[in-house]
Amino acid sequence: MSDIRVLIVDDEVDFLETIVKRLQDRGFIAKGAENGEQALDYLQHNTVDTVILDVKMPGMDGLQVLQTIKLRWPLVEVIMLTGHASVESGIQGMQLGAFDYVMKPARLDDLLQKIRQAVERKKLQEEKIHRAQNQ
């Protein structure tokens, strides 16, 4: 587990700080971004396995960020975090390629489980690609 790299994007700084600390505490390589631009900037320079993305943010909103991520780094799995009246936006996110969605306030255990599943899928995808390239 120690090598899972997670980027959390949320405009709620208190939430962001804490969850980053808790994930780090559990051995994740966790990093926080306060908005979409920061997140994309970080992804530009770093490799990330999973992005946890708040749907509603000032500036670029979660769905826009999701679309950009999926366009530029298709293998990066994205878990949508919705605090809004937004099962729709969660589902919409999934239609746009998000791995899953979690409703705020989420239990950390639920979130961890989804992160692990996402990473598993990413690994599978990577392996498939790897095999395809080797053949």
């Binding site: 939430f15 600390k21 808790r22 009246a85 409703m103 705020k104 306030p105 989420a106 239990r107 950390l108």
Partner: peptide
């Protein structure tokens, strides 16, 4: 209801995470 739920969910998320962190 949706408006209220949304406004409460964010602080609730912070409270939950902070409490979780304290517990950790």
């Amino acid at each position: 209801a949706a408006g209220i739920a949304h406004e409460i969910n964010n602080p609730l998320a912070v409270i939950g995470e902070k409490a979780g962190w304290v517990k950790d």
